[in-house]
Amino acid sequence: MTGITRLFSHFDPNSTYSEGFFRYVDAVGIVAMRGVMATKEPPKGWGTDELTKFLDIIHWNNWAVFSNKHAEFQLLQQVDQAFYTISSNLNHPQTLLEPMLLLRSHSAYRAACGLVMGGQTVDAFPSLRSVLEYALYALHIRRNSGYGEVWMRRHESDDSIRACRRRFETRKVMATLAAADQSLHEKIRTLYERTVDYGAHPNERALTSSMQMRAGDDDVEFLHLYVVDDGPALAHAIKTSAQIGLGALLIFRMMFKERFDILEITPKLDELKKQL
Rank of each mutant, 00 (worst) to 15 (best):
M213F: 14
D12H: 06
M1G: 08
E264V: 08
Y109A: 02
P13C: 06
L263H: 09
F256K: 07
T240Y: 11
E271F: 07
R205G: 00
R171P: 02
D229Y: 08
N144H: 09
H140S: 10
S130I: 06
H140R: 09
A248V: 01
S9G: 02
Q275P: 00
T195W: 04
G216K: 01
V150T: 15
L184M: 08
P43M: 08
M100F: 14
G199T: 09
P42I: 03
S67G: 00
L223S: 04
E204L: 15
T266E: 05
F260I: 02
L263G: 02
K187G: 05
A138C: 07
D181I: 06
V79D: 03
K239D: 12
H185Y: 15
V79Y: 09
A179M: 10
V79I: 09
A242M: 06
R166A: 14
T85Q: 11
D181F: 06
M254N: 07
R6P: 02
P232A: 10
L250P: 00
L269M: 09
Q94Y: 14
T121P: 05
S183Q: 14
S105W: 12
M211Y: 07
I4S: 11
F83Q: 03
L191P: 05
L96D: 02
L276H: 12
E149I: 09
W63D: 05
L276R: 02
M254Q: 12
P99F: 10
A180I: 04
N144Y: 07
M254C: 07
A180M: 09
R129D: 03
V116Y: 00
S130D: 15
E41Y: 07
W46Q: 04
S107L: 04
G119K: 05
G29M: 06
Q275H: 13
V116I: 08
S145P: 00
L272G: 02
S145W: 10
N91M: 11
R34A: 13
V36I: 14
T16H: 09
S183L: 12
K187H: 13
Q77V: 04
F256S: 09
P13T: 04
W60S: 01
A32V: 11
D56G: 13
T240L: 08
R253D: 08
R154H: 12
V31F: 14
G35Y: 11
T85C: 07
L51E: 11
G231S: 05
L128G: 05
L76H: 04
R205I: 08
E264S: 13
T208N: 02
T48W: 06
A175C: 03
D80R: 07
F252E: 09
F21V: 13
R253Y: 10
S15N: 13
P267N: 07
H10A: 10
E149Y: 11
L51N: 10
K268D: 07
P43C: 05
R6N: 13
D197E: 15
F252Y: 15
E19I: 11
R214C: 04
R142D: 12
A178D: 09
Y147W: 12
A135C: 03
H10K: 12
S130Y: 10
K172H: 14
A124H: 06
I58F: 04
I251N: 03
S67Y: 02
H185W: 14
